[in-house]
Amino acid sequence: MTYKLILNGKTLKGETTTEAVDAATAEKVFKQYANDNGSDGEWTYDDATKTFTVTE
């Protein structure tokens, strides 16, 4: 399945997607991506749209 990440950071904004077997796997990928790019904030997940959002 395709999962989407929306970044609403102070310095990093945008979207990216990943293919993953489940939401937990996608979350690990996205959290590593956000960490690698210095983005940290409040995470939410919408199962209906398969979208993670991180807001700083």
Rank of each mutant, 00 (worst) to 15 (best):
46 D>R: 02
45 Y>N: 00
54 V>E: 02
30 F>I: 00
40 D>F: 15
41 G>C: 06
53 T>P: 01
3 Y>D: 04
51 T>G: 01
56 E>I: 12
47 D>G: 07
54 V>L: 13
29 V>Y: 15
26 A>M: 01
22 D>L: 02
17 T>A: 06
40 D>S: 13
21 V>T: 11
24 A>P: 07
37 N>H: 14
47 D>M: 07
32 Q>P: 01
16 T>W: 15
19 E>K: 12
15 E>V: 13
48 A>N: 10
43 W>I: 03
23 A>D: 04
42 E>I: 14
46 D>C: 10
20 A>G: 03
33 Y>E: 02
55 T>L: 06
49 T>S: 09
10 K>Q: 11
10 K>I: 14
13 K>Q: 11
33 Y>Q: 03
27 E>W: 14
21 V>L: 11
46 D>P: 00
49 T>G: 03
48 A>C: 09
2 T>P: 04
39 S>P: 06
13 K>S: 09
50 K>P: 01
17 T>V: 08
14 G>D: 09
31 K>A: 05
52 F>G: 00
8 N>R: 10
48 A>S: 11
23 A>N: 05
5 L>W: 02
44 T>R: 07
42 E>Q: 10
49 T>C: 03
8 N>W: 12
26 A>P: 00
27 E>V: 05
38 G>F: 14
18 T>H: 06
20 A>D: 01
22 D>H: 02
24 A>N: 07
31 K>P: 01
26 A>H: 00
14 G>T: 14
28 K>V: 09
39 S>F: 15
47 D>L: 06
50 K>F: 08
29 V>G: 02
4 K>R: 12
35 N>Y: 14
7 L>P: 01
51 T>V: 04
53 T>I: 08
43 W>P: 00
42 E>A: 09
27 E>T: 03
52 F>I: 01
1 M>C: 14
1 M>R: 12
46 D>M: 04
20 A>N: 02
38 G>R: 06
34 A>E: 02
15 E>Q: 10
8 N>P: 04
21 V>R: 10
28 K>L: 11
37 N>M: 15
1 M>H: 14
7 L>C: 11
16 T>M: 15
5 L>K: 02
48 A>H: 09
31 K>V: 06
16 T>V: 15
9 G>V: 09
46 D>T: 03
27 E>K: 10
19 E>I: 15
6 I>W: 03
46 D>Q: 03
10 K>H: 11
8 N>A: 09
51 T>D: 00
48 A>F: 10
14 G>S: 14
35 N>E: 14
28 K>W: 07
38 G>E: 06
8 N>C: 15
19 E>D: 10
50 K>W: 05
47 D>E: 13
49 T>A: 05
43 W>C: 00
42 E>V: 13
38 G>H: 10
17 T>D: 04
54 V>M: 10
38 G>S: 06
37 N>D: 04
37 N>Q: 13
28 K>H: 07
15 E>P: 05
35 N>W: 13
36 D>S: 09
40 D>Q: 13
37 N>W: 14
7 L>N: 02
36 D>C: 11
50 K>E: 02
35 N>L: 15
37 N>A: 12
40 D>Y: 15
10 K>S: 11
9 G>F: 15
20 A>T: 04
31 K>H: 07
6 I>M: 05
34 A>L: 14
35 N>A: 15
27 E>S: 06
11 T>I: 10
41 G>M: 11
34 A>T: 08
34 A>W: 13
13 K>P: 05
31 K>M: 08
17 T>R: 07
34 A>R: 02
11 T>Q: 09
36 D>I: 11
41 G>Q: 05
22 D>G: 03
22 D>S: 06
25 T>W: 07
18 T>Q: 04
32 Q>T: 07
48 A>R: 10
41 G>S: 04
9 G>C: 15
45 Y>I: 01
13 K>T: 09
24 A>L: 10
22 D>V: 01
28 K>R: 13
29 V>D: 04
3 Y>V: 04
45 Y>W: 03
4 K>I: 12
7 L>A: 04
14 G>M: 14
39 S>Q: 14
51 T>W: 01
22 D>A: 03
55 T>I: 08
19 E>H: 12
23 A>L: 08
34 A>S: 04
43 W>Y: 02
37 N>F: 15
25 T>E: 13
21 V>D: 09
54 V>G: 01
2 T>S: 07
4 K>P: 04
52 F>C: 00
50 K>G: 04
25 T>V: 07
20 A>C: 06
1 M>W: 13
49 T>I: 05
27 E>Q: 10
37 N>G: 05
44 T>F: 10
17 T>G: 03
19 E>R: 13
3 Y>R: 03
5 L>I: 03
11 T>V: 11
1 M>E: 14
12 L>F: 14
53 T>V: 08
11 T>D: 11
56 E>A: 10
17 T>L: 07
20 A>V: 03
49 T>H: 04
28 K>P: 02
47 D>C: 06
55 T>H: 08
32 Q>I: 09
13 K>F: 10
30 F>K: 00
20 A>R: 01
6 I>T: 03
24 A>K: 10
56 E>L: 11
11 T>E: 09
54 V>I: 12
17 T>Q: 10
18 T>D: 01
50 K>I: 02
29 V>R: 08
43 W>E: 00
31 K>E: 03
42 E>D: 11
18 T>A: 07
7 L>G: 02
30 F>M: 02
2 T>D: 06
17 T>C: 11
49 T>E: 05
21 V>A: 12
12 L>Q: 12
52 F>P: 01
15 E>D: 05
10 K>D: 07
47 D>T: 07
47 D>Y: 07
50 K>M: 08
16 T>P: 02
4 K>A: 03
29 V>L: 11
22 D>M: 02
36 D>Y: 09
6 I>L: 06
51 T>K: 02
36 D>M: 12
44 T>G: 06
25 T>N: 06
13 K>H: 12
38 G>D: 07
23 A>V: 11
12 L>M: 12
38 G>L: 10
36 D>P: 04
42 E>C: 12
1 M>L: 12
32 Q>A: 11
30 F>P: 01
40 D>K: 14
8 N>M: 14
55 T>Y: 08
46 D>V: 04
10 K>G: 10
13 K>L: 07
3 Y>Q: 03
26 A>G: 00
30 F>S: 00
21 V>E: 09
33 Y>T: 03
16 T>F: 15
35 N>C: 12
40 D>N: 12
2 T>E: 08
56 E>S: 10
2 T>A: 05
31 K>I: 08
34 A>D: 01
4 K>L: 07
56 E>C: 08
41 G>I: 04
39 S>W: 15
55 T>E: 07
53 T>Q: 06
3 Y>K: 03
20 A>P: 01
55 T>D: 06
36 D>W: 10
32 Q>F: 05
48 A>Y: 09
35 N>T: 12
27 E>C: 15
1 M>I: 14
40 D>P: 08
11 T>N: 12
8 N>G: 05
2 T>C: 14
36 D>Q: 12
11 T>W: 13
5 L>R: 00
21 V>K: 11
8 N>D: 08
9 G>Y: 09
36 D>V: 11
50 K>Y: 08
32 Q>V: 08
41 G>E: 03
28 K>N: 06
7 L>M: 12
3 Y>E: 04
46 D>H: 05
45 Y>S: 00
31 K>N: 03
48 A>I: 11
21 V>S: 11
44 T>D: 08
11 T>M: 10
14 G>P: 05
32 Q>M: 08
12 L>E: 09
44 T>W: 07
34 A>K: 02
43 W>F: 04
51 T>E: 03
51 T>I: 05
39 S>N: 11
28 K>I: 09
23 A>F: 13
33 Y>F: 12
9 G>P: 03
15 E>F: 14
32 Q>W: 05
52 F>Q: 00
7 L>S: 04
7 L>Y: 10
6 I>P: 01
13 K>A: 07
46 D>N: 08
33 Y>P: 01
40 D>I: 14
34 A>G: 01
22 D>K: 02
20 A>I: 01
55 T>M: 07
27 E>M: 13
23 A>C: 13
